[in-house]
Nucleic acid binder design. Structure first.
Length: 607
DNA sequence: GCCGTTTTCGGCCCGACTGTTTTCAGTCG
């Protein structure tokens, strides 16, 4: 690389890091976990192109253009694989060059320009940018100066002291990288909930169409809505397992068939996700479903109960321990009932006291997706969303919501360039649209930024003009515990703040939760009637289940929100509901299951 | 590369923090 090229490289790369980094995570996920929609497949491709372009020192605006197009296509409601050139170009951010590449991909399965970049930059170099604080520029330097093209090589180089000679890399950077590697490694073998779910549902649908398939569903941690998934368990019932096993192992894309038997087969998809299929006779369906749903500790408890009752529980059924006579096995209900328990919803099966409570017939009537009457945290293309207000609202109406809040970012995050005028103009448009959909009311709100001292963006007079305010931590994640606690407490005490958005600000596998005294924060929420969000984004799931259980003890209310940045992602609310279920929440605990008049009173209590 | 009541070039997402420097590159939200 010449000096001049390097200079250009530096100035341009300086401006590209942020968004690339944010989406690299998503792109990586898509590669590991497979692609349910052609749109996501194309988006992942464009994102990869953007990443490689920025690593190779490509023009910053070009990098961003591919980035933007990737986001737009991922969030676009129509299937890109059915589009012609003109329709493609009607997607915002897609022009001639990108439309051509998309068409080339759909026609031939590859893009020459992307292949050329792949030849230039090993995939391991792109993987390096998944490490926090290590962006495209640093990854490029590491590769060019030291030939580092994988995380393992990077760790080795640090231990060998080889980074010391590279300008811009000091002791602190080494330490941060090692810490970041640790964080990413913990989640390396696991995928986000949506990735696993989409893959599982697609597969289940395909298997259900196979001749002789009597039943098919996903089980395991996915059925329990665990926050990340190690491998996907699929259970099917059939008299003759062979056709199902064949359909399973011969599907695309399979990288490797790791087991292929009569009862169980395992595959690894081309993106590294492991999927197990078990086929049982219909008569054993209930016992098998119970067994393969887990959790391990929950099952230890149920087997224990069986043992104490002179029974034996396995994936084949509930048997009399003495005679080996089958007692029951056809449905999960039968199995639980015969153990003296009501059926226990899978998200509760974590051995967190559900057995004892079930025995007393005191299981909570946990919140379900159909209880949700509206979404209270969503974005539009006015800030960092990709769908216009009208599309978001139309999709919300299709989902049957009784109310829907638009909460774009506030001026505190300068990148979004929010202004008073823009917020007021949006409000006017929201008021115009309100009533356009029968039975759905619109709320105009904002997602405020909680500053380092706990203050939020706008003065109280202005905030009073909003129907609803979510307030979230978006910066200064590393404050000392006491400072962070004071910060959150102050935000809760602000009478205009209704909901604390993604309260711990964690990004699963990427950024740890902020350090705060949660007991203190939850106590304050209860006192100030500030709801805690359960952010449904599969990258966040924040609050997480255990924090929800703790907060509930303080009498806090919750809001399950999608934080959708496109119309397509409004459907992601289900992952938040699953998390709320894991936190034992009922609809009484969740403010967006309440009727509009009750929600209004909660948001703006009469003084 | 995309986009345009500024129609065909020039602007596009800005500011702060961190770690490395000693004036700034890189990363992040």
């Amino acid at each position: 690389m010449t000096g001049a090229t390097r200079d250009r490289f530096r100035t341009l790369a300086a401006r590209t890091g942020g968004i690339a980094q944010r989406l690299a995570d998503r792109a990586h996920r898509d590669y590991r976990g497979g692609m349910a929609r052609p749109n996501d497949e194309v988006a992942a491709l464009l994102q990869e192109y953007s990443d490689l372009l920025s690593i190779s020192g490509g023009a910053a605006y070009k990098v961003r253009a591919y980035e933007k197009a990737a986001r737009a296509i991922s969030g676009h409601p129509q299937d890109v694989s059915a589009m012609d050139a003109d329709t493609l170009r009607s997607v915002p951010g897609v022009g001639k060059a990108i439309a051509d590449k998309v068409l080339e991909y759909l026609r031939t399965g590859s893009v020459r320009a992307l292949d050329a970049l792949r030849d230039e930059i090993p995939s391991g170099v792109r993987d390096l940018t998944a490490i926090p604080n290590l962006g495209p520029r640093k990854a490029a330097t590491l590769y060019q100066d030291l030939g580092i093209a994988s995380t393992d090589e990077l760790v080795e180089a640090i231990h060998a002291g080889r980074l010391r000679d590279i300008p811009g890399f000091g002791a602190k950077t080494e330490e941060n990288i090692l810490h970041g590697v640790e964080l990413t490694r913990q989640s390396e073998e696991r995928v986000h909930l949506d990735t696993a779910m989409e893959q599982a549902e697609e597969l289940v649908e395909r298997l259900l169409s196979v001749d002789g398939c009597q039943r098919c569903t996903h089980a395991g941690s996915l059925r329990r809505f665990a926050e990340t998934i190690g491998d996907v368990d699929i259970l099917a019932a059939a008299g003759e397992p062979r056709p199902l096993m064949d359909a399973f192992t011969e599907q695309e894309p399979v990288a490797e068939v790791t087991a292929a038997g009569e009862k169980k087969s395992s595959i690894r998809t081309t993106d590294g996700l492991r999927i197990d299929l078990r086929v049982v006779p219909l008569s054993a369906w209930g016992a098998a479903l119970q067994y393969f749903t887990g959790s391990r500790t929950h099952n230890i408890r149920t087997r224990e109960i069986a043992g104490n009752a002179g029974l034996k529980l396995s994936e084949y059924g509930l048997f009399d321990a003495e005679t080996d006579q089958l007692v029951v096995s056809e449905t999960e209900e039968e199995v639980y009932n015969r153990l003296g328990l009501p059926w226990i919803p899978p998200p509760l099966r974590e051995d967190r006291g559900e057995i004892e409570v079930a025995r007393k017939r005191e299981l909570p009537d946990i919140v379900s997706e159909t209880d949700i009457r509206g979404d209270l945290h969503t974005h539009t293309d006015l800030t960092d969303g990709v769908s216009p207000l009208e599309d978001m609202v139309a999709t919300a109406a299709e989902r049957g919501y009784a109310y829907y809040a638009v909460t774009d970012h506030a001026p505190g995050l300068p990148m979004h360039r929010m202004t008073d005028e823009k917020a007021l103009a949006q409000r006017e448009r929201v008021r115009e649209l309100d009533g356009a959909y029968r039975g759905m009311r619109l709320l105009h709100g904002s997602e405020l930024n909680i500053g380092p001292d706990g203050a939020v963006d706008w003065p109280e007079e202005f905030l009073n003009g909003f129907d609803i305010c979510v307030a979230s931590v978006h910066t200064h994640f590393n404050q000392p515990r006491e400072e962070m606690t004071r910060r959150l407490v102050r935000a809760c005490e602000n009478p205009c703040v209704n909901i604390i958005g993604h309260p711990t600000a964690r990004l699963i596998g990427r950024r740890p939760a902020i350090d705060a005294d949660l007991d203190e924060v939850f106590r304050t929420c209860a006192r100030t009637r500030t709801a805690l969000e359960i952010n449904a984004s599969p990258h966040r799931l924040d609050l997480r289940d255990e924090d929800i259980l703790l907060a509930k003890k303080y009498g806090v209310r919750f809001a399950v929100n999608s934080d959708a940045h496109s119309a397509v992602h409004l459907a992601g609310l289900r992952y938040g509901v699953g998390t709320a279920q894991r936190g034992w929440l009922t609809s009484e605990d969740v403010i967006n299951t309440w009727p509009m008049h009750r929600l209004r009173r909660f948001l703006r209590p009469p003084s």
